[in-house]
Design a protein around this nucleic acid. Structure first.
Lengths: 181, 181
DNA sequence: CTATAGGGCTAGGGTTTA
DNA sequence: TTAAACCCTAGCCCTATA
């Protein structure tokens, strides 16, 4: 019927996230016009950006506007369906995070992880596997695919935290130095 | 768990077929609203219509998209599916950290951790090396959208820090300095 | 007219039930 | 184990609003 579905690539997704980080959510046309992103996102409209951001917000675990709408619709089906509840943790919306960085304009980032404490060998080994996997993928990607690299780093870090937390209850520490280049 | 199954009656099936004949496949909501069929199909949703039509297509002998998919799976095309799982980062309460950051209008960010006791295991050190290597590689790369990457990573790390903070409350102490460039 | 917000819709993969 | 019915949701469309 309409246009054939065009799945978002990880590069496009990263560009969108970066765009929101830079200009804030809701500035879809602005993001599209930004030369930092226009190349990657040239096939997307401002509405596409909005829709994708909505999807990302939902999967990030926050109760986005979409979630609420879905809950409301749960009525009106034949059978009430008792157990609607998948044990969502009440996660706050990530929009807050983005708000904090709207005005940031870093040109380079250096991150130096230092020591961290994990009480279980097993969890450490698992972490190692995850990182290795990420690095391998990094090397597979061509040098031009920087946004994909950023994506993998994000995923890796997020996994790192969630696993470390769930297995040990302890957390790791990062020394992170941000600096302009 | 799911809703109890409601077998399609021959009358419903006939109505669906007539609806598709009249409006064409893919017009599920239109068929549903058509007074010619709404009475018979009143217990079905547009998605139900779509699903039923898919099943009918399969049974009708033509290789529907469904058949192909099943075939592909039978060929043992096992995609490891990696670890899509541990992305369940439930960022309970991201507010605190962000609030501390919101005041600043950073063009650059410096995050310094406090001291730390650590069991300095080799595997842990290796993790650090791998992460550091990845970040360095990113930094060395000179792409047109470097700013985008940097912004994105900054956002990621800030979120990461937030997650750590929200979980421990105090275990992790970050000193964050925001500075203009 | 232009842009954004938000609900609606379909397609297709996944899951559950008989 | 399989097939039919049902669920989930990304991506796209439509409308209201400013």
């Amino acid at each position: 019927m309409g246009a054939p579905k065009q799945r978002w690539t990880s590069e496009e997704e990263a560009a969108l996230k970066a765009g929101v980080a830079k200009h804030g959510p809701g500035k879809w046309r602005t993001i599209l016009r930004d030369t930092d992103f226009s190349a990657v996102l040239r096939l997307r409209s401002n509405v596409d950006l909005k829709d994708k951001w909505r999807n990302l917000s939902v999967t990030a675990g926050g109760y986005g506007s979409r979630e609420k709408a879905r809950m409301a619709l749960k009525q009106g089906k034949r059978v009430p369906k008792v157990n609607t509840e998948p044990m969502d943790v009440d996660a706050d919306n990530l929009d807050n995070v983005h708000d904090t960085v709207i005005d940031a304009k870093p040109l380079a980032v250096v991150v130096e992880p230092s020591q961290r404490e994990c009480s279980s060998e097993k969890s450490v080994a698992r972490l190692d596997d995850l990182i290795l996997e990420a690095i391998k993928k990094l090397k597979e990607s061509s040098g031009s695919n920087k946004t994909a690299i950023a994506s993998y780093i994000e995923m890796t870090l997020i996994r790192l935290v969630s696993i470390c937390r769930s297995n040990t209850g302890h957390l790791l520490i990062f020394n992170a130095y941000y600096q302009q280049n």
